[in-house]
Amino acid sequence: MLDITNLEVRTGDTDILRGLSLSVKAGEVHAIMGPNGSGKSTLAQVIAGHDAYEVTGGSITFNGNDLFDLEPEERAREGIFLGFQYPVEIPGVNNAYLLKAAMNARRKHQGLPEIDAFEFLKLAREKMATLGMDPKFLNRGVNEGFSGGEKKRNEILQMAMLEPRLAILDETDSGLDIDAMKAVAGGINALRSPDRAIILITHYQRLLEYVEPDFVHVLSEGRIAHSGDKSLALKLEEQGYEWVREAASA
């Protein structure tokens, strides 16, 4: 589904990614871990199409198509969803409005009619209930005045409504208490299916107790330094990242 080959990315004078390769197939859940500043968010933002980053080498294809040919919105309509580490507050834009606009943009691209207003509300309420969100959040400005945890739940709500083919969740678990974590994990697990893929970017192995990954990767020095199964997450939790760095530079 997603094939990243020798990706090199810089911003300003700094090389952030230096030859990163990763292959994600439908049905898989990948976890990407790594120390602060190792480039995890950069990778996510580049996949989503942020133009603050300059791609200086390598390629990314999504279902065989060159991602760099697509605008961010086209990537979204193709089914790529990015849950932001820092969701943006947009005062004056109604949460329900954005959800509906996002769904309709995707549906239009798929040749489907716009979602019926009643259907939309029903679906949104349903998803919000499972995420433990007050329906009042529908009528608030996008992320406006939301707490950290509420913002993350809102990202998961968008994901649940959009049913993307590839979901990249950038530290969606950080700053969540245990109940919020469980709700978010429930949302992610509900999305798991043989024709979807999920990339979890996380610092902690805690989330991975609730959402079991098929693969765990460690990002260090701008590339995937180490890959393994979920036991790798445990090892990182116990031993930190130092050994990865040493192994990588050895």
Partner: peptide
């Protein structure tokens, strides 16, 4: 950042600008 956020939700850039201006 808000423009990019809206784009990642499927709104094209022109529409995203419009949404933010209207807001």
């Amino acid at each position: 950042n808000a423009l990019f956020y809206l784009q990642t939700r499927g709104l094209d850039r022109q529409e995203a600008k419009r949404v933010l201006t209207r807001a």
